[in-house]
């Protein structure tokens, strides 16, 4: 049902999963449903995941994402391609989530984060309890699904601003600049939050390994 000029049609993948972004945007503006399906497949669950960092329940997150889709459909004609499509969509989502005015989860002020947890270091600044080695076996197991659940829970339990930054950077793979763009952070603050989040997640893994 869609023309692919200059390309051999591929009957097995009517949803064009690998279509390049500029072309996708072009098709979206013309009302191409297959292009829209690609967008939904690529980003819907990511958006729910991001929305969850703003609102207290899954169902509210789904509503926020639904409203975000309306914004995307209406706004795609004005998308100027100064940022990536995904960054633009995520920004709409963040605005939408903030507009819902539901109870926000706990955030921490960047100034309150501290530099390091004191118990880890001796008075001279050297390690008092150095990191225990992770063997290759353990590292291989990390990528197995067993670690996903504890990490998912740990990420959700992080203070909201840490949770958002690490979700966008390390789960979704946005660049530092894109994260700043989506969340309205300075690069320095973004790094402080990310640093804190990663440290906590490393400790979660350490803990899980210790239990195993």
């Amino acid at each position: 049902m869609i023309g692919r000029p200059g390309q051999i049609p591929d009957a097995t993948t009517p949803t064009l999963p690998d279509v390049e972004e500029g072309e996708l945007v072009e098709r979206l503006r013309k009302g191409d449903e297959d292009a829209f399906a690609v967008l939904v497949e690529r980003y819907h669950t990511q958006m729910v995941r991001l929305a969850r960092t703003f609102v207290p329940s899954r169902s509210v997150a789904e509503e926020v994402v639904q409203d975000t889709w309306v914004g995307i459909i209406k706004g795609i004609g004005t998308f100027e391609e100064r940022s990536s499509l995904r960054t633009w969509m995520f920004r709409i989502l963040v605005n939408q989530a903030r507009k819902t005015g539901v109870r926000e989860r706990r955030a921490v002020a960047v100034d309150d984060l501290g530099v390091d947890l004191p118990e880890r270091f001796a008075a001279d600044g050297s390690w008092s309890s150095p990191p225990v080695p992770w063997t290759d076996d353990v590292v291989d197991q990390l990528f197995a699904s067993a670690m996903a659940e504890p990490l998912r829970i740990a990420i959700e339990a992080l203070p909201t601003n840490l949770c958002r930054v690490v979700t966008l950077r390390d789960l979704e793979g946005l660049s530092a600049r894109e994260v700043c763009d989506v969340l309205g952070l300075t690069e320095a603050n973004q790094r402080v939050l990310l640093h804190r989040a990663r440290r906590q997640l490393r400790r979660i893994i350490e803990h899980e390994i210790g239990e195993g």
Binding site: H44, S126, P131, F143, A148, L151, L171
Partner: peptide
Amino acid sequence: PNCSRYLEQIRITIDTVGHIEPDTL
């Protein structure tokens, strides 16, 4: 070696988090 190990473990942490799959649509 302690800080090298720490850096390596942070890299592994990032990688592990990156492997968490989103829900299915």
